[in-house]
Design a protein around this nucleic acid. Structure first.
Lengths: 136, 136
DNA sequence: TCTTGACTGAGAGCAACTCTCAAGAGTTAA
DNA sequence: TTAACTCTTGAGAGTTGCTCTCAGTCAAGA
């Protein structure tokens, strides 16, 4: 059993966010102890994991709630759940492509600045510069 | 020269968002025609591209504004700009790793549901089921 | 006993959109 | 030439998903 603080640390999600998710019904039936303190089980960590996964791909909380509710209904909802996961996976792949593209731009910019800085350093310390020529 | 609508289409960013970014000072000096209509140049598209890039990696608008302002100041800010881009690239690489991890979970779930559905289909159409045995 | 350190829910605050709307200008159709 | 239609504009309201603050409860330790 884990407290909300431990779960926050383990799953790298803030306590605030966990409470917000809990309040939004994204974790079904988290147990409380006699002092009303949430006690996350290993099984509950699985819920945190899937919610975090769906969120990180941009699924909105309402859709996550829908998925969770489907899970609770039972086997009859397997086809719909399968569809959700499949669509989410495709979305994740698209995000991967997009991220690759953005990384290319960042690589380009980084190289560009490196060149600028390198040339500037050469200018600074090269005595040729003292001659004030316009040579390249 | 492009209208905001054309830029929205070209860069896959909503007109609303482009106006919001413009109002936030994320594009320097967009020209207007005699009717006060924004006219994005090819050069302006470059700004849209880098702003979109930084946003997509989760940079907040204030930091993007800072980067843009540094660019406008001139060469003296190259080291700081270089640092920003380098840090952003590292952040993007981390996001890539995170996304890969989440994709693994989605792959696992998708396979899991596929198995469930396949078995269910077999159950449905396999006459053995008519015997109502408890055999695996 | 007093303090320290969780944990709680309620609710305010915030970032970044997202949407609605009225106003104004150009374009086309009757 | 007047009406209808389209596009753009800024202002501002609304939404989502946190994020933070705060007052209150409880248990354990000095």
């Amino acid at each position: 059993m884990y407290t909300i603080k431990e779960v926050a640390k383990l799953m790298d999600v803030s306590e605030h966010t966990l409470r917000f998710w809990a309040k939004s019904g994204l974790f079904p039936n988290i147990k409380r102890n006699e002092n009303n303190i949430r006690q996350f089980s290993e099984h509950d960590l699985g819920w945190v994991k899937i919610v975090k996964c769906l969120r990180s791909v941009g699924t909105d909380n309402k859709s996550i709630k829908r998925y969770v509710d489907l899970c609770l209904i039972g086997d009859s909802t397997i086809p719909e759940r399968y569809g959700i996961i499949k669509a989410t996976r495709i979305k994740a792949l698209q995000q991967m492509e997009e991220l690759k593209k953005q990384l290319e731009l960042l690589d380009y910019k980084e190289n560009y600045y490196e060149e600028l800085i390198k040339n500037n350093e050469i200018d600074k310390y090269n005595p040729v510069n003292d001659l004030q020529t316009s040579a390249v």
